[in-house]
Design a protein around this nucleic acid. Sequence first.
DNA 1: CGAATTAATCGGTGAATTGCGATGAACATG
DNA 2: CATGTTCATCGCAATTCACCGATTAATTCG
Lengths: 106, 106
Amino acid sequence: MQDDDIANIMRALGHPVRLNILRFIASQQQRECCCGDVTESLPLAQSTVSQHIKVLLDAGLIERKPHGTRNRYMIRHDRLSEIGTAFGGLLTGLNFQAPHKEAEPA
Amino acid sequence: MQDDDIANIMRALGHPVRLNILRFIASQQQRECCCGDVTESLPLAQSTVSQHIKVLLDAGLIERKPHGTRNRYMIRHDRLSEIGTAFGGLLTGLNFQAPHKEAEPA
DNA sequence: CGAATTAATCGGTGAATTGCGATGAACATG
DNA sequence: CATGTTCATCGCAATTCACCGATTAATTCG
């Protein structure tokens, strides 16, 4: 995964409301819900929630399925595990990354 | 760790330049470097790099140690592992979180 | 077809972010 | 003490973000 992708995802996760939205979706019985459900659970206007959902969509964290007059949203578990791997790699790299040049002093 | 803390950290990680700075610091022989070193490695002005460093500092991802006329920066490994744990918890929660209310329909 | 529902999108506002050059504080050294 | 080095910080412009109300598109249903 590119740095830009990681940065995008991190930015998408970098807002408390969006964390709440993700958790809300994950907490639903069917593991999916529509925009209105989310809006009800938050002290924000519908348009604002829709915006946040769009950010999560663009970052690939959730997916949309139109269903009649409403949309169903659900967590993209496939991407979540990718992200987990990438993030783990990032942290590991920061912890143990070999020196810039000429590691292994023989 | 609070949602706000996580969001702050994610936002700090949400910029490619800052990812580069972190990796650059981690890649140094002594696992530390000063602002000038970072600036040389990037096509950005010194003031801009200093700003990014401040964001990383505020998020607790690096620490500063004054050393003569320059400052030494190093990765905060303690925090890194905290963050790893918190992030893992977040992802796990999104994957397996129990339904919001009244699970177990008896 | 007409009315209602749902939710995306548009336009606007204020705040924050990102970049820069310039300034100034802290320190070392001649 | 004067000079040079390093770097944080201060404006400043441009862009993006977060939020809102209003509008519009899609769909269902009477």
